[in-house]
Design a protein around this nucleic acid. Sequence first.
DNA 1: CCCCAGTCCTGCGGGC
DNA 2: TGCCCGCAGGACTGGG
Length: 280
Amino acid sequence: MPELPEVETMVRGIRDSLVGSRISEVLLPPCACRPIQIFPGIEEMRQTSHGERIAAVRRRAKRVVIQLENEHAFVIEPRMTGLMLLGDPPDREHLRFEWRLISGRRRFSVWFWDRRGLGTLKLLNPEELEKLLTGPVLGPDALELTLEHLRNRLGKTDRPVKVALLDQKLIAGIGNLYASEILHLAGISPATASSKISTSRLERLLSATQEVLQLAIRYEGSTLGDGTYRNALNQDGSYQNQHRVYAREGEVCRTCGTGEILRIVQAQRSTFYCPRCQKR
DNA sequence: CCCCAGTCCTGCGGGC
DNA sequence: TGCCCGCAGGACTGGG
């Protein structure tokens, strides 16, 4: 499931090829499955993007932003199973969108592939893009968090900290997998009421967030058993081998060597933790 | 306003 | 063996 590290890996994987190249065509591949949500329609997308040069490729939280020189931007939300690919896709039937590009004499394509089709694709105008980047829909990016952010945002809610970490309005970029990983490294129980966490423990939470996300980026994200997430060249990430708790229910905690990893359900999502290492 | 349950989607694996 | 059901969870919606 693409979260911040996986989306960052996608962006790094396509950036050098895309920046400076020119869009010759955008296409909806023939696809037997239900079409993904796109906005606006394909014809408006063509009119706005045809012949435009790509100025930048960046990440905002869990979204890929492809900025054009005319200041419009494609914004891709991979959600559960979406991938940005330069190489061969896992299969042809779940290709959802194609950008045909020209760089000098070279012609190539970048694809959006999405097995489950929960992903979305939008072409935003400059005002809409500005709202996405700085508006209230998304909180501060998890890699740019400060202690003040945590104090102001977690301090005002009594929800369990695991649930609050998933709220993109509070902090943007953390998903279900990395929330469990971060709380384990921070030594904080996922059930702790957010507002009850002391400043010194918020400092641990802050450094654990940076450490886990940066390390996961270095390992190019997590490819789980379902094998869905891959980098831009359709290769596996390797952070799954470093997982501290996620999907390790019943196994022994590698940190304390004795605790058994438990799974609980919070807000209809699985949470994994070590009851010995993580206290309220 | 705040928060939670329900919803979308597809593929896979457990159980009978 | 084959079928069905539940589960995976990112982001959004409706309602309490």
